[in-house]
Nucleic acid binder design. Structure first.
Lengths: 238, 238
DNA sequence: CGTACCGTTGAGCAGGCTCAACCGCTGTGG
DNA sequence: CCACAGCGGTTGAGCCTGCTCAACGGTACG
């Protein structure tokens, strides 16, 4: 087991030097302890990790790749509550059941930890537990930011905010050889379900952004921001 | 200090008998330990508890009343990320600063706990900390549900979901003498900012619900659900 | 008693949804 | 090797709903 891939990224409770940047919360010792409980799983893209309302015996941590957490509403509409990246945790249960379904967006490496064993470890190691508390708090704030993004009136504002989120959260797996090129690993339909708009609206809006010279798409799964100031303005505008 | 008012309500990780119902997470011992650190504060309605980006030295727990957590966007628009009720925690920091502003919606009793002292306590008492972890996880799920609500297309669906949330979360302070009458302590503008719609849309929609005989408003701050099935249908319909 | 603010309703407009067609790519089977 | 089906993405046409601006009544509070 390569424990160095076991990471927990978040902005700490306390003030640190770099503002607004997620850092690695785990020490080498923490990672070794967790690695003792974890099973590493490699998954091809579009693999269902688990389905909502099934028995939650494990907690998952992402070593690499992207996972989406979603719910299928009674109407048949799908709602993506979050994209999860390297250093994120998922699978926290309610009443012993998963609340969302999760599926890999890209090829992914995921660590699976039995929930009972993790609970024991957290009870024995309050310092490690505090880091998990920090991580969950971080994800709570991310969820709140997502809500703010979805409640934006204009489609352009939602898309702009979404691209900035990808730049912030997804840059750990971005292509290093092409600076300022951001990976967009999900489909347009995924983006639509995440932002609460139709896939057509996503497509129309990105096309307009391209025509206005604000961004460009080298290929379907990468975007380059040409005019950050204008994108920023769109994101800020209500 | 009346420690019995110190509560932490959430749905536990593990399976329990009553599904979907938040329960008290703290034992008497936990409450006493917390009470030793906490200062009780009584606040009139519309009191700012703290402002975003200020130094976060305390964590807050609600003994009674309703608090809103919000952010003012650059455009001047206000976005309410959540309403907080009895048994909720707020003030979890990022980089030593509060991320949102909070204000009381009703008269409220709030416990203020120094963050350093709480951290020490949580380090000494891993079992208590696990309960806080459960609580934050619960609030994360609430935030996700909120996102799903906001991404609903129709105003009627959003309002219906909002009323069901009030019925679920707010019933601890509902008027016992008028069964099935749900307290709506916030203004229409608050509801609008929470749901990401205009105050006019809230007003128009509630009027229509009244005309259709689905709900009635005995007064401005209470609602009675006359046709739960129809409301449910509206909430489910996309 | 006056003054705000909250809530409601109306008129007009714009933006996004729905339905539909079309293109390009991929994988599959004849 | 090619035909075809399926999916993801894009674009167009028309409709609908919620936003904006505006006016007005009621209530709470100084």
């Amino acid at each position: 087991m390569n424990a160095s891939a076991l990471s927990l990224r978040a902005i700490p409770f306390d003030a640190v030097s770099a503002v607004g940047v997620a850092t690695q919360l785990l020490t080498e010792r923490h990672r070794e302890n967790l690695a003792g409980l974890a099973t590493s799983m490699h998954m091809p893209r579009r693999t269902i990790v688990y389905r909502e309302e099934t028995l939650a015996r494990w907690i998952f941590m992402i070593a690499d790749g992207v996972v989406k957490s979603y719910r299928d509403l009674p109407s048949g509409k799908r709602c993506i509550v979050g994209f999860l990246f390297r250093g994120d945790v998922f699978g926290l249960a309610e009443n012993g059941q998963f609340v969302n379904s999760t599926q890999t967006v890209t090829r992914a490496t995921v660590y699976r930890i039995p929930v009972d064993a993790l609970k024991d470890l957290l009870r024995r190691d309050p310092d490690l537990q505090l880091r998990f508390l920090c991580k969950v708090t971080h994800q709570l704030r991310e969820a709140q930011r997502h809500t703010i993004g979805v409640s934006r009136r204009t489609t352009a504002g939602k898309i702009a905010l979404f691209l900035k989120m990808l730049e912030r959260d997804g840059h750990w797996h971005a292509d290093r050889s092409a600076p300022r090129s951001i990976a967009v690993p999900m489909t347009r339909a995924d983006i639509a379900d995440y932002l609460g708009i139709s896939a057509e609206a996503v497509s129309r809006c990105t096309s307009r952004l391209v025509r206005r010279g604000i961004v460009e798409f080298p290929d379907r799964y990468h975007v380059r921001i040409l005019n950050p100031a204008e994108l920023e303005r769109l994101a800020a505008a209500m």
